[in-house]
Amino acid sequence: MTEHKNTLTTRVSLKTAIVGASIVTLLASSGCATSSLLEDNKRVDTKTTKTVLSEDQIVAFGRPAQALPKMPNATMVIVGEKNSYVLTQGGTEMVGLLTNLTPKNIQVDNDMNFYVPNNDGYFQGEMKLSYAKLKDEFKRSDYQFFLQNGGRECTSASDQRINAQRFCFSVPVKGAIYPQVSNLSLIQSNYRALTKPYTVSFYTQNQQSQVSRGGTNTAQKLVLLPFALAFDVVTFPFQLLDN
């Protein structure tokens, strides 16, 4: 009888120990989950934000009047009211399009947004323009030019209503940011204003870390090349028209 009682007591003690261990394990796991949840709440979220560095009004398109130091491939300049934007890649293609196509039929895409990866004075992006006129005005040589320069047909419904045809061009470009051209006043007095406002903007992308909501971006300004100096520019003999 005593032996049976001892055995029963041992079983009860073992069962109590197991239950107690289970409770401890449950509490411990709950504590880990709580700790993990707290850590998750404190986790730093990282997101990419787009920051506009500068916007400028375009005055004219042209080329440097003289060779620019350290910029042997500078073939085209976007003349802005604030700064000058020298194309070092894609400029030759743009000059070819703007000087070979009939000026009154050219329309430049107004959405000229250029990416400045490191805000060190260098930018990249695309320049887009379209060329349209009545179908019966096109010649075989026109179509040959479009084929050679990557033109694609992009005739719109409004073009079709007047029996016109449109071709679009997209030129990848890279460039550098220079100060305002030296002869800006002369250009503004002699060069006819563009018939619609053309704006160029520059932006960068930052990885922003924020522990809580409501984080604010640090304001940034567009940086020019440290060796960039003002220069004269020769404008192209055409005016961009809005259809």
Rank of each mutant, 00 (worst) to 15 (best):
N113G: 08
N118D: 07
S13Y: 03
V79Y: 06
D109A: 15
L14G: 00
V234T: 15
D111V: 10
D40Y: 07
F138V: 03
Q89H: 05
A17W: 05
N6F: 12
V59P: 06
P103G: 05
F61S: 03
S84N: 08
D120C: 05
L98I: 08
S35Y: 01
G215L: 08
S156Y: 02
S158G: 02
L147M: 15
Y122W: 04
L129P: 07
P172H: 07
F236Q: 01
T92R: 05
F202Q: 04
V24F: 14
K5S: 09
L38P: 03
E153S: 12
I58L: 15
G31K: 02
E93N: 03
Q239R: 12
L134P: 06
T216E: 08
Y191L: 07
A33T: 11
D56P: 03
T10M: 09
F169Q: 04
N113K: 13
Q205P: 06
Q124A: 03
Q220H: 01
G80Q: 07
V77M: 08
K42S: 11
M71V: 09
I78L: 15
S212R: 10
C154T: 15
K196P: 00
A67M: 06
T235D: 05
P103T: 08
E39S: 05
L222D: 09
D111A: 13
P197A: 04
V44G: 06
N105K: 05
E39I: 13
S36G: 10
A164H: 10
G96R: 00
V86S: 00
E81S: 10
N163A: 14
N83K: 08
Q148K: 15
G175F: 13
E126S: 12
V59R: 02
A219W: 00
E3K: 14
G151R: 05
A60F: 03
S158W: 04
L134Y: 03
V24I: 15
F231C: 10
A17F: 06
E55Y: 02
D232S: 13
T16A: 11
L37F: 13
Q208W: 01
F231M: 14
P69Q: 06
